[in-house]
Amino acid sequence: MPDEEANQLEILLTREQIYQRVAELGEKISKDYSGIEELIVVAVLRGSVYFAVDLSRRLSIPFSLDFIGISSYGATSYPLGIVRITKDLDINIVQKHVLLVEDIVDTGLTLNYLIKNLKTRNPKSLRVCSFLDLPGRRIVEVPVDYRGFEIPDLFVVGYGLDFQERYRNLEVVAALKKNRSGT
């Protein structure tokens, strides 16, 4: 595994485990939405892209894929103001069934904002599918209708999740233990 700074990675979910679980989720979602005209799959940039791509390959229902991006707290040089949409949907979701796809739900702060924002656009239905769920870190309660894995309170990377833009492309999910002298 490429790790020139000698941060320690401990594998939590193998490629096979992820592959199997994503297939199960795809099957369940396809079953739950069977008979609908179209599902709008909204992937939250950037972390959920890997999951959304694999999940969408497992859907047997008609769907459109779109993306939404929001600013992150602390991403500016000084944390001020309020969250903003950095990339809005291209598809009009009025009276459409929407599935919001997240890579991870921890505090619930981002998801809480996204749900509020999307609901103002009057979708026919709105559900949430998250690859990972860390209920131990929750600050605000948010509904997670489909979850890949519930994991303990660790800093995790891989399968879309990054640490300073690194490790996104790992095919596994790993806990990152930072080597203090190395960073």
Binding site: Y73, P79, L80, G81, I82, V83, L109, T110, N112, Y113, K116, V140
Partner: peptide
């Protein structure tokens, strides 16, 4: 204060 700022940011 930092926590309050974070809540403000996410409109909570």
């Amino acid at each position: 204060e930092e926590f309050a700022r974070m809540l403000d940011f996410y409109q909570i």
